[in-house]
Simulated scan of single mutants.
Amino acid sequence: MDVNEILRHVDHTLLSQTAVWEEIRQICDDAVAYRTASVCIPPSFVRQACDYLNGKAAVCTVVGFPNGYTTTAAKEFETKDAIKNGASEIDMVINIGWLKDGKYDLIENEIRTLKEACGENILKVIIETCLLTDEEKVKMCQIVTEAGAEYIKTSTGFAGGGATFEDVKLFSEHVGPDVKIKAAGGISSLEDAEKFLELGADRLGTSRIVKLVKDMK
C-alpha cells in the first residue's frame, strides 16, 4: 500500500497530559505537510489549532476522555464547546461501567445525544476494547450502529492496551454498513498500519506513523 494512502487515514494524535502548544503546532504542520485525515488534540487547544490551521486540516478532539464515566450532560457540554471552538470530529469515550452493568439504553441514549450535539460533524465512539469481553465488543458494535455514530473506535491508549488485529476484524464483522472503524493505540509500524486498513479500519489514531515517514525521508 502506498505510504500516502496510509497517511490519508491517519488521525495524527497528541493527547499527552504534558502537551504544550509548540508540540501541538508541530503536529498541525505535519498534518498539512503529510495530508493526514486530521489532528487529534486535547480540547483546550482546539480553538488555537483551528485558528492556526485556518481550514488546512481537520481538527479532532476528545470527550469524556480517557475514562468515560463523566455524566452525559458533561459530555454533551464538552461536545458543544468543542464544536463551537472549531472541531469537526469528536472522539467520545463510553461509560464502561454502564456496559458492564448491562445499561445498554443509557449508552445508546448518550451516543445519540452527542451525535445530535455534533450535527453534521463526525462522532467516533471509543469503547476501550482492552477492558471488554468479545461479547461486550459485539454488543457495542450493535449499539453504535443503532445510535447513528459514524465510527466505532478501539481504544484511548490510556487503559493499558490498544488496537489489535483481532478486534478490528471483529468490528468489521458486526458493525452496520454505515459505521466505519478507527483503530487506535500502539500502532507503531507502517506494516501494522497497512494490516489494520486491510482488515477494515478506515482511520488510524497514532502519533508514530508520521514520524516514521519523516524518518524515511
Score class of each variant (00 low, 15 high):
76 E>F: 14
93 V>G: 03
153 K>W: 11
140 M>A: 04
84 K>Q: 15
26 Q>M: 05
53 L>V: 05
94 I>Y: 14
53 L>F: 00
29 D>C: 03
186 G>M: 09
118 C>Q: 05
196 F>G: 01
204 L>W: 02
100 K>H: 13
182 K>Q: 13
149 A>L: 14
146 E>V: 09
142 Q>Y: 03
102 G>E: 08
102 G>D: 09
112 R>E: 15
38 S>Q: 11
213 V>K: 09
210 V>T: 07
118 C>D: 05
38 S>R: 11
179 V>I: 14
187 I>W: 06
82 A>S: 15
33 A>V: 11
199 L>D: 06
165 F>I: 00
81 D>P: 04
93 V>T: 07
96 I>W: 10
172 S>P: 10
156 T>S: 12
198 E>A: 13
195 K>Y: 11
148 G>E: 15
56 K>H: 00
194 E>D: 10
181 I>M: 13
120 E>G: 13
138 V>Q: 03
1 M>E: 12
84 K>Y: 15
72 T>G: 10
34 Y>V: 08
74 A>E: 14
136 E>Y: 03
20 V>Y: 03
15 L>A: 03
87 A>S: 10
91 D>R: 12
141 C>T: 01
114 L>A: 07
92 M>R: 10
181 I>V: 12
206 T>D: 07
12 H>V: 13
114 L>T: 05
118 C>N: 06
36 T>H: 13
176 G>M: 11
110 E>I: 14
217 K>V: 13
144 V>E: 02
40 C>P: 11
23 E>L: 01
112 R>D: 09
47 R>C: 09
212 L>F: 04
196 F>K: 05
81 D>F: 15
184 A>N: 14
180 K>C: 11
41 I>L: 12
185 G>K: 12
